[in-house]
Design a protein around this nucleic acid. Sequence first.
DNA 1: GTCTATATAATGATAGAC
DNA 2: GTCTATCATTATATAGAC
Lengths: 228, 228
Amino acid sequence: MRSAQQRPGAAPADDATSRARIRDAAIRRFGAEGFGVGLRAIAADAGVSPALVLHHFGSKEGLRRACDEHVLAVIAEVKARSVTAAGPEMVMTQMAEIEQYAPLVAYQLRSVLAGGEMAKALLEDFMASARTWVADGVAAGTLRPSRDEEARVRYLTLSGYGGILGWMALDPPEDFGDLGPWLRRYMEGVGLPIMELFTEGLFTDRRMLDAYLSYVSDPPADEAQRSA
Amino acid sequence: MRSAQQRPGAAPADDATSRARIRDAAIRRFGAEGFGVGLRAIAADAGVSPALVLHHFGSKEGLRRACDEHVLAVIAEVKARSVTAAGPEMVMTQMAEIEQYAPLVAYQLRSVLAGGEMAKALLEDFMASARTWVADGVAAGTLRPSRDEEARVRYLTLSGYGGILGWMALDPPEDFGDLGPWLRRYMEGVGLPIMELFTEGLFTDRRMLDAYLSYVSDPPADEAQRSA
DNA sequence: GTCTATATAATGATAGAC
DNA sequence: GTCTATCATTATATAGAC
């Protein structure tokens, strides 16, 4: 049904070059099973010998670098041509986009889990998007200003993305090839609490915030000691 | 200075049984480098032969199970005797506790990253604590009630814990043996945005929440189609 | 309980034919 | 470009002496 279609980094297209087939197979395997997976499995998926993988990419490390680059490139490309609508529809639009690139998303999640430079690059990328989105919202008057915009952008990005990772641990995707149902479960599970928290907050009064602010501006004895 | 002290799962106490020494060495290695680490390294840390590790735990899998059990047991023990103070001091108190059990915390973070049953057990555990904390807060009138308390507890736990994982990817601890400075950086980095968000929310009006609620109670056509 | 020595399987990587 | 055959290394795990 979709066999003839050209989805970047997705199902194997028989007409692609071996190099691309290997890379796409690697992205799928790495995404589904983590970076511990062997070259033999990847080679088998791509329908080539293990030696050819090394011939094209030099080493496993080189293969991973190629996957990283390709994933980042596709993300940049998708981002460049996506119309960033504001409002709840945006989320749904992006959802549809995401489902289309399931292997990329899985690879991405694994990369953040694994840490390292790729994780930083991805998170910095998401933070950049969030920075724009928040700044626009504040300018338009739909989002409250913060006492520290950069810290808020960082927190929103990390907790949002990290929340997905936590959800993945609690409810692992059954099929990494089709993350759709899993993403839908996630959205349904966190939608209400997010909307509530972002609209109404959690505390009934300002005491905790005020306590924190005075704590920071005038730290108690043993904290002052440390910086002395 | 601390050599004679008895910190569960912490620095090697020469008087402990080999079995315990191996297990503690494993917790430290697994926590610092992940579960890919070899038995040889663990055996060397514990000052025993690799064969003895297998003798005591049967397999690497068995060793990991023993580590899991021990970590869960220590967490339960600490939790049981901790006085759960309400307010910002609670966080600070728990911080001090956490620093004391750095190897356990690192192991825990790795476990959640790795997924599997241990990750579920840990997250369920944290959710149980959060459930109590939130229920008490709502009863005391310091926390707002939610339209779905369970979903909120889940979201707060996952995003909170996941935020730490994300932070770890962005700013990896330099020394897993002493997570103190790293945890302090994290707390300083997220303290203000959390207090702001929990007190004031993010949106300036209720439109997003209302849109979401009406979306859920009366889904558009293609969503209704799916459930038909 | 603890060791040395070893079995066995899998890994990433190389050499060289085609 | 692509393969087969193989190497060197490392991994977990076992056997058996002490």
